[in-house]
Simulated assay, not measured.
Amino acid sequence: MRVLAVDDEQPALDELLYLLRGEPSVTEVHGAGDATAALRILRSHGADAVFLDINMPGLDGMELAGVLGEFANPPAIVFVTAHEDHAVAAFDLGAVDYLLKPVRQERLGAALRRVAAHRARPGAEADPVGNNEVIPVELAGVTTLVHRSQVSWVEAEGDYARLHTDTGSHLVRIPLSALQERWRDGFLRVHRSYLVALGRVTGLRTVGSSTRVCLRGAGPVELPVSRRQVRELKQRLVHGPHTPPERR
């Protein structure tokens, strides 16, 4: 495939180009130091995938990705950045993957495989409720992609959020409020500290004057529901998890 790498820091760009040239699936590689040069190369050579730094002067990576998304045949976008806190916005733009610097060869190879799958099945990733959205999670230098569909509930931990899945939990640098807004169609914030996947709810239990929601996950889980959320929770469970939440 033809790949364009864009980064305003020359050493980082040189390193990424070196790694890309070492990948068997990459047949043509170009580099650009800013958005203007990137668009010039795309007009003259084209690209199947663009590996984009986010923090760049002038038109930044997010803005350039928005421009590329308007192309008649847009290239696959892979963001490459030192900051993991842009992940939600990146996937909102339809990014195929999100790499954290310094990029490792094996992680780059995984990203290229995702690009190849994306190109081979255009539209196959389409998901009107966003269940295929992924959040990159770093643990001991290894990046794991956690799919939204794997998440049973999310717990607030200050400015971070802990994603609870069938296989364990992952702390990510994304506030609970951001995920609450991004995942409105299938999740509900039942408490100031908890966001739950409505499709994972197995029942409600009343304990005295309080209500608890029962979830399936790595094991049986019960979480408190604030009084003002009980009605909306019941309505959305009756009418389906993807019922639009009530606007207050």
Score class of each variant (00 low, 15 high):
2 R>A: 10
6 V>I: 05
7 D>V: 03
8 D>R: 09
11 P>M: 06
13 L>P: 10
18 Y>C: 06
21 R>V: 03
22 G>R: 07
26 V>F: 02
36 T>E: 15
40 R>D: 15
47 A>V: 06
53 D>H: 09
54 I>L: 04
61 G>L: 04
63 E>V: 01
65 A>L: 06
65 A>D: 07
67 V>M: 11
77 I>A: 04
78 V>Y: 04
78 V>K: 03
80 V>A: 08
80 V>S: 10
81 T>I: 14
85 D>I: 04
86 H>V: 10
86 H>K: 04
87 A>E: 06
92 D>K: 10
95 A>H: 12
95 A>Q: 13
99 L>H: 05
110 A>C: 02
114 R>K: 15
117 A>Q: 12
118 H>S: 12
118 H>K: 07
119 R>E: 11
120 A>V: 00
122 P>D: 00
127 D>Q: 09
130 G>W: 02
130 G>P: 09
134 V>S: 08
137 V>W: 10
138 E>D: 07
139 L>T: 12
141 G>C: 12
143 T>M: 15
145 L>T: 02
145 L>V: 02
146 V>I: 15
150 Q>S: 15
154 V>D: 09
161 A>E: 08
162 R>N: 00
164 H>R: 02
164 H>A: 03
165 T>P: 00
170 H>K: 05
171 L>H: 04
177 S>P: 02
178 A>H: 01
183 W>P: 01
187 F>G: 02
192 R>T: 03
198 L>R: 13
201 V>H: 13
202 T>N: 08
206 T>I: 06
219 G>P: 01
220 P>A: 13
221 V>H: 14
222 E>W: 03
225 V>Y: 06
226 S>T: 12
226 S>E: 05
227 R>E: 12
230 V>E: 15
233 L>Q: 05
235 Q>I: 01
235 Q>G: 10
237 L>K: 08
238 V>E: 14
239 H>F: 08
241 P>D: 11
243 T>K: 11
245 P>W: 00
246 E>W: 08
247 R>K: 14
